[in-house]
């Protein structure tokens, strides 16, 4: 039982976030979202931008490990 705590929490969290995400996209169709730049007014643009940015940051960061990561005692050597 104990082991499933985090898993079930994760599952329900994922479910709610996906529902909220879907609602936010649907909301975009109900009104004209004014932005400072016209291309940002495309349906779901901030959502797309957020998703892509996040993936880009994580994957680029992961790749940068090749160049930036050293052993924990690097400066002590």
């Amino acid at each position: 039982m104990k082991k499933n705590d985090l898993k079930s929490m994760g599952k329900s969290f994922t479910k709610y976030i996906l529902i909220i995400g879907a609602l936010l996209i649907l909301l975009d169709f109900t009104f004209h979202r004014h932005e400072y730049f016209s291309f940002a007014e495309i349906y779901g643009f901030p959502a797309f931008f957020g998703f892509v940015s996040f993936v880009f940051i994580v994957l680029l960061g992961k790749w940068l490990r090749k160049f930036l990561m050293r052993k924990e005692d690097y400066y002590d050597q």
Partner: peptide, 8 residues
């Protein structure tokens, strides 16, 4: 939208 889809 930005935040929720970043969480997704």
């Amino acid at each position: 939208q930005l935040l929720v889809f970043a969480i997704i």
